[in-house]
């Protein structure tokens, strides 16, 4: 009788040990998401360095050198730092996850920095359509192209491009 009871207890404890050993891969206080999202054909190139959304920022920051401006803010409850790197007319925002920083968005702020397909601030709507084809969706003020984990948006005013952003689906 006692043996059976002990066997059951042992079984339960074994189950507990098994549970403890089968780590889910999630950080207990963290997000648990991994960078497994699909890549996108929409990638920005800055000084020859390809900057894709959801890419690890550390090697990019090293390759790009000293930013002209840098800002960081602590997220609520210390879940990491939201960082903003400015390289001339290009702003790269990152989000923290599992102890690393990943590219959340790339924003082009002036006409000195075109997209790989040659569109820049000040280009007209027709030039965007010629370079990228029909958008995934469009409004009176934006053309949006979605591919993989990236949304490339051209913001328009009076049919002229006034803003260009590459945004991660993590946003």
């Amino acid at each position: 009788m006692k043996k059976r009871a002990l066997a059951m207890l042992a079984g339960a404890l074994t189950l507990g040990v098994l549970l403890a050993g089968c780590g889910s891969g999630k950080d207990a206080a963290g997000d648990g998401k991994q960078q497994t999202g699909p890549a996108s054909k929409y990638v920005f190139a800055l000084d020859g360095v390809e900057v894709a959304v959801n890419a690890d920022m550390a090697p990019l920051a090293e390759a790009l050198g000293e930013p002209s401006d840098y800002f960081e803010s602590e997220s609520c409850a210390f879940q990491g730092l939201d960082k903003v790197y400015t390289y001339g007319g290009v702003i790269i925002r990152t989000y923290p996850q599992d102890g690393k920083d990943y590219v959340l968005s790339v924003e082009l702020k002036d006409d000195a920095v075109p997209t790989r397909e040659g569109i820049y601030i000040g280009a007209d709507r027709e030039a965007v359509l010629a370079a990228y084809g029909q958008p995934t969706d469009e409004t009176a003020t934006a053309l949006r192209y979605v591919d993989g984990d990236c949304t490339l948006a051209f913001i328009l005013a009076e049919n002229m491009v006034t803003g260009i952003t590459y945004t991660s689906d993590a946003a």
Binding site: D69, V84, R93, T139, A142, T151, I155, T165
Partner: peptide
């Protein structure tokens, strides 16, 4: 001290 310029949004 200051904040980055706001990001333009498509929507």
């Amino acid at each position: 001290t200051g904040f980055p310029a706001p990001q333009a949004l498509a929507d």
